[in-house]
């Protein structure tokens, strides 16, 4: 464990908690892409199948459970509890255009052709594109509440910190997970234009992000 990975995990946890609390307290999921949240729940489900088979540490197990519970709870809030506020007309990204290529690639490029490893690879590739429905929804509606932008900021920051974690691990322990690194770079690149808007608009005190 290193400081970059720890900060990354904390940033990821903060993002997930921000979103959950925003929906739970405002009793509304307006502006939130339910499709992205379903994809994230799928990412955690396919990645943490080893929850019961391989024990890494208390921290690892606890964080996996927390991520799984919060992601499914968020999907529940969006599609069941506050479904009347779910803006399905704006959440129109064709997720099959993500799932099919990601599934295909996870069969082609993986470390080991076993169910667990292919599902882990699937989750890595899927996570790199899972935010696209949400980013697409924001460009479609042309705006996002500032709380939503804070969620996206910490979510984007988490994988950027993981990139630093991989640089650190490569130089200190020779660790290099090519699939995770390439996907992490792609994932972080998708946030770049959002990061620019976040810094130039939201941090200037605007109540919400309105796209030009």
């Amino acid at each position: 464990m290193n400081v970059f990975r720890l900060l990354g995990d904390v940033s990821h946890l903060v993002a997930i908690i921000i979103l959950f609390l925003k929906i739970f307290r405002s009793k509304s999921c307006a502006g939130i892409s339910g499709k992205s949240q379903v994809l994230f729940a799928l990412v955690f489900t396919t990645r943490y199948l080893d929850l019961f088979t391989s024990f890494i540490s208390i921290y690892n197990t606890v964080m996996k459970v927390v991520f799984l519970v919060l992601s499914y709870a968020t999907v529940y809030l969006i599609y069941l509890r506050f479904r009347s506020s779910y803006d399905s007309e704006s959440d129109t990204f064709r997720v099959e255009f993500l799932l099919v290529p990601v599934a295909g690639l996870s069969f082609l490029e993986n470390y080991d052709f076993t169910p667990i490893e292919i599902l882990w690879t699937f989750s890595i590739y899927l996570e790199s594109v899972a935010i696209l429905p949400q980013l697409f929804m924001i460009t479609k509606t042309g705006e996002a509440e500032s709380i939503t932008t804070h969620y996206l900021f910490f979510l984007g920051l988490y994988r950027a910190l993981y990139l630093a974690n991989w640089v650190w691990r490569y130089h200190t322990e020779g660790f290099f997970d090519q699939i995770a690194v390439v996907s992490g770079v792609v994932q972080t690149i998708f946030y770049c234009d959002f990061f620019y808007l976040y810094v130039t608009k939201v941090l200037k005190g605007n109540s919400k992000l309105t796209l030009p």
């Binding site: 995990d9 890494i56 690892n60 080991d112 490893e117 997970d177 995770a180």
Partner: peptide
């Protein structure tokens, strides 16, 4: 190639 250790990252 098989990645020897289990995936230890979240």
């Amino acid at each position: 190639y098989a990645l020897s250790m289990p995936h230890d990252e979240l």
